[in-house]
Amino acid sequence: MIVFVRFNSSHGFPVEVDSDTSIFQLKEVVAKRQGVPADQLRVIFAGKELRNDWTVQNCDLDQQSIVHIVQRPWRKGQEMNATGGDDPRNAAGGCEREPQSLTRVDLSSSVLPGDSVGLAVILHTDSRKDSPPAGSPAGRSIYNSFYVYCKGPCQRVQPGKLRVQCSTCRQATLTLTQGPSCWDDVLIPNRMSGECQSPHCPGTSAEFFFKCGAHPTSDKETSVALHLIATNSRNITCITCTDVRSPVLVFQCNSRHVICLDCFHLYCVTRLNDRQFVHDPQLGYSLPCVAGCPNSLIKELHHFRILGEEQYNRYQQYGAEECVLQMGGVLCPRPGCGAGLLPEPDQRKVTCEGGNGLGCGFAFCRECKEAYHEGECSAVFEASGTTTQAYRVDERAAEQARWEAASKETIKKTTKPCPRCHVPVEKNGGCMHMKCPQPQCRLEWCWNCGCEWNRVCMGDHWFDV
């Protein structure tokens, strides 16, 4: 396979590697080409510095992935760790964990309700045991953590790749202090920090972006993250068709209702045909949960890209028209025109101005929308079919299609509260000796007794199943 190397943020060049090629071997190839010592090179990928003893497969490097290699003399205490030698983080029983690669970060837990604080980093599902597709590297999971809308060759929703760059020099040479644990960490600028490894760059702020994971991409090709779309790892039924499908869209209502993408497309087109989208002054033209839940309008309007190009163009047109109407304007009634106009409040005669090729020149009556006339309008008909009709959803289907309910059931079956801080902690095999993952707590306690870890627990039921 081919990976592209950008040395000291210059133009990239291809390097041929195998899945079992080590990072140090990659350094040696680059060092020979650039005429520099291999031990002064640092390989940066997806916000993480890659260790010498890791392989291309370990690092989730795919065909035509772009890695950054910078030349920086080692500072005291760094060289041993980078070589894969006596790194205290690798000691058996050590409590410190390697910062998780962005290629394996899962933010789907952050669609849980606000009262489930902490689960994004504490609760991990076991539903990723799908067998890898044919042709994928051994052991590589097909679980997708992110979804994007690819405006490039795909023109559809695709699995996405999370990447990070330095907000100062805009190069992907920043190593994160810690990985993101929720969508806010990724979507809110300057929320996460790190250290830029580019020479002479003092940058410390992280800037995240997404790429389409279905095809090789260049540095400049980015895609918009659709953070309401998630892999259906909890096997929730769709609120409309009641099938279990994946991926799904999880509405931001209190129940976190789930809808499959085909039904979401149908829901949007139906509402669009009836012009029953909601115009929100802050958000724009949007839709609420299909069950009509309060405070559930979709905030990231790129989710409506699921409509496809033709329907999305209609959505944008109707949204612009609705904006004009909300501002007190009118639409030209001549067939084939429909231009938005903003006449004076007491102006009865409205002319669709033909300047700049935008208007048709038609003069019409503001009251009856017919060709302009003197005197009273002959008839004014009330528009028919403008009443909002509820999208029919079966109550039982709505009850079963809740992301929140599956989460709470998982928590109930696989977790116990920490005796000190009461945060839910998952036990997935292993011994009875637990350690609270909350940095402010870190209590060592017994899963069996529910009390602080002691010699009695150690001698009596340390390794009970």
Rank of each mutant, 00 (worst) to 15 (best):
residue 9 S to D: 06
residue 17 V to Q: 01
residue 17 V to E: 02
residue 18 D to F: 10
residue 22 S to Y: 09
residue 23 I to R: 00
residue 26 L to S: 00
residue 32 K to F: 10
residue 36 V to Q: 03
residue 42 R to V: 13
residue 43 V to F: 04
residue 45 F to G: 07
residue 45 F to N: 06
residue 46 A to M: 14
residue 57 Q to E: 10
residue 61 L to W: 03
residue 67 V to W: 02
residue 72 R to M: 15
residue 74 W to T: 13
residue 81 N to H: 14
residue 81 N to D: 15
residue 86 D to P: 09
residue 87 D to H: 10
residue 88 P to N: 10
residue 97 R to Q: 13
residue 100 Q to G: 13
residue 103 T to K: 12
residue 109 S to R: 12
residue 109 S to A: 09
residue 112 L to Q: 14
residue 118 G to F: 03
residue 124 H to N: 14
residue 129 K to Y: 07
residue 161 K to P: 00
residue 165 Q to D: 05
residue 167 S to G: 11
residue 172 A to P: 14
residue 174 L to G: 00
residue 184 D to A: 09
residue 194 G to R: 01
residue 220 K to E: 14
residue 222 T to P: 08
residue 225 A to H: 03
residue 228 L to I: 03
residue 233 S to F: 08
residue 234 R to F: 05
residue 235 N to Y: 06
residue 236 I to Q: 04
residue 240 T to A: 14
residue 246 S to K: 04
residue 249 L to A: 02
residue 253 C to Y: 00
residue 253 C to N: 00
residue 257 H to Q: 02
residue 262 D to S: 04
residue 273 N to C: 03
residue 276 Q to E: 11
residue 276 Q to H: 07
residue 277 F to G: 02
residue 278 V to C: 11
residue 279 H to V: 06
residue 279 H to I: 05
residue 282 Q to S: 13
residue 288 P to W: 03
residue 288 P to K: 06
residue 288 P to H: 05
residue 293 C to A: 00
residue 295 N to V: 04
residue 297 L to C: 06
residue 298 I to K: 00
residue 316 Q to L: 14
residue 318 Y to L: 06
residue 322 E to T: 05
residue 323 C to P: 04
residue 325 L to N: 04
residue 329 G to M: 04
residue 332 C to S: 03
residue 347 Q to V: 13
residue 353 E to I: 08
residue 355 G to Q: 12
residue 363 A to N: 15
residue 366 R to G: 07
residue 368 C to S: 02
residue 369 K to N: 07
residue 371 A to Y: 10
residue 375 G to P: 04
residue 378 S to K: 14
residue 378 S to Q: 11
residue 381 F to S: 07
residue 385 G to C: 07
residue 386 T to I: 14
residue 394 D to N: 07
residue 399 E to P: 05
residue 414 T to S: 12
residue 415 T to W: 12
residue 418 C to R: 01
residue 421 C to Y: 01
residue 422 H to R: 06
residue 429 G to L: 11
residue 429 G to D: 15
residue 433 H to T: 05
residue 433 H to M: 05
residue 439 P to G: 06
residue 443 L to K: 06
residue 444 E to V: 04
residue 447 W to K: 03
residue 460 D to G: 04
residue 462 W to D: 01
residue 465 V to T: 03
